[in-house]
């Protein structure tokens, strides 16, 4: 049976992990390769690296990091953050990334999704969508959720699917950082509507939230950062919990 995926997300700046991590066994809390290896050994099903480096020349560091990660770990990983051109994607895939994720670039130039899917195959193109509810209506936001667009989230999700995205990473900015649970309503709506997998992000605070997002939220995968980094929820405990709760999970 196809299992639900648990995906830790690592924020990367200039080739180093940012935001605190709290693993006693880490020698260097900023080393993404070491952290990736620990997550992989603990049973993470996939990893996401989100690059928040601002400058272009620092992005070379990202490709080098991707190669190091690809050499060290044997589970799939996605790289996102600031990717906007075919050339960006080529560099990262050649460096060893399995998938890339695009966000603002797709909003500004939707055609880029078609071009990337045609060039590299849908299976490696993840489109990240940041959504926020404004007076009860869900709108796509960019710039880390700060800037509203006129795109309705549901319509945009359908459009990126039609344009050839392989997966959607849906982050609810209303839930992100709250630890109050995923935005199951809109997740369920979008997941039921689309033929491609939906990765839920934003709001994970306890183990029951993961059960909820896989049942009520109909998500195919769930992503979280700080609760994993600070070991509030160790991945092995989360997976045994979900297994006991009847969620199909990789053991």
């Amino acid at each position: 049976m196809l299992t639900k995926r648990i995906i830790p997300c690592l924020d990367i700046k200039d080739g180093r992990t940012v935001k605190g991590v709290n693993f006693v066994e880490l020698r260097d809390a900023g080393d993404p390769v070491e952290l990736a290896k620990i997550y992989s050994d603990e049973g993470a099903d996939e990893l996401v690296f989100l690059d928040i480096t601002a400058t272009v020349d620092k992005r070379k560091t990202l490709a080098e990091l991707v190669t190091k990660v690809a050499k060290a770990i044997n589970i799939p990983f996605t790289v996102g953050g600031g990717i906007s051109t075919i050339e960006d994607v080529k560099v990262l895939l050649n460096a060893g990334a399995d998938k890339i994720s695009i966000n603002s670039a797709a909003v500004h130039n939707p055609q880029i999704i078609n071009e990337m899917a045609a060039e590299f195959g849908s299976q490696c193109i993840v489109v990240a969508i940041d959504t926020r509810s404004v007076d009860g209506i869900d709108f796509v936001h960019t710039h880390g959720g700060r800037k509203a667009t006129l795109l309705r989230t549901q319509a945009w999700a359908q459009e990126v699917c039609d344009r050839g995205a392989g997966e959607i990473l849906l982050t609810s900015m209303d839930h992100d950082g709250t630890k109050a649970g995923f935005s199951n309503e809109i997740l369920a709506e979008i997941s039921s509507m689309l033929s491609i997998p939906v990765i839920a992000s934003g709001g994970a605070g306890n183990m029951a939230h993961f059960k909820d997002v896989f049942t009520f939220g109909k998500a195919d995968a769930a992503l979280a950062a700080s609760i994993f980094h600070f070991k509030e929820i160790p991945i092995p405990s989360l997976k045994s919990y979900l297994d006991r709760e009847g969620i199909s999970i990789r053991k």
Partner: peptide, 11 residues
């Protein structure tokens, strides 16, 4: 709703 294509993930 139940089965998406492609088949992506661990099985």
């Amino acid at each position: 709703q139940e089965f998406k294509v492609p088949h992506v993930g661990w099985n």
